[in-house]
């Protein structure tokens, strides 16, 4: 498609305002880490691949030594400082990464349409048995890195790098354009 303007959406895609995102790398099995994270988010350390949320806060498992803390954008610097202070004795890295990424919200009329739209672009198994609500999957969306999770059966959030946000937005528009309903999920 060279002209995106001719497409009518059946899945709506919007870029969300700046989301506070803190990358925390540390030995996640350490109690001090769990305590520090809980103090900020009110949430426990997530299991592998899980993403937990509570109000404006959230926490996502990124790898065995990395989590991503979600919080209001304006609070990031303060929380990073808190983490650095509480984990001063522990080898760790806490960084405000909010500006590095863009977040898209994808809303579909049906749960199946949402999974169909994503499964056109990502090699992930989007079957509900394989990827349920509350699991973050890091993969690629066509040719760019992305992480996606379903906030509810008909809504997904997708994280991508800021530099490719236009590309990712366009991809989702192409994938979610009318006529392209697959009807698989």
């Amino acid at each position: 498609m060279s002209d995106l303007s001719t497409l009518t959406p059946y899945v709506s895609v919007s870029e969300l305002p700046l989301q506070g995102m803190i990358t925390l790398r540390a030995d996640l099995s350490q109690k001090t880490v769990a305590t520090a994270v809980k103090a900020i988010t009110g949430l426990a350390m997530p299991a592998p691949r899980a993403i937990l949320e509570k109000g404006a806060y959230g926490i996502a498992w990124m790898s065995h030594d990395e989590v991503m803390i979600l919080c209001p954008y304006a609070e990031c610097a303060a929380h990073v400082a808190t983490l650095d202070k509480k984990l001063a004795k522990l080898h760790h890295l806490a960084l405000d990464m909010s500006d590095a990424r863009a977040v898209f919200e994808i809303t579909a009329p049906t749960a199946g349409a949402l999974r169909d739209c994503l499964a056109k672009l990502m090699p992930t198994d989007f079957h509900p048995d394989s990827l349920g609500v509350g699991e973050l999957r890091r993969s690629r969306v066509a040719q760019a890195a992305a992480a996606v999770w379903l906030t509810d059966p008909k809504t997904a959030q997708l994280f991508a790098f800021r530099s490719v946000k236009q590309y990712v937005h366009d991809l989702l528009r192409v994938s979610g354009a009318k006529g392209g309903e697959v009807g698989y999920f």
Partner: peptide, 12 residues
């Protein structure tokens, strides 16, 4: 072995 995800070669 870290994620437990069965990854496609295009992700590796």
């Amino acid at each position: 072995p870290y994620c437990g995800v069965s990854a496609d070669e295009t992700e590796l």
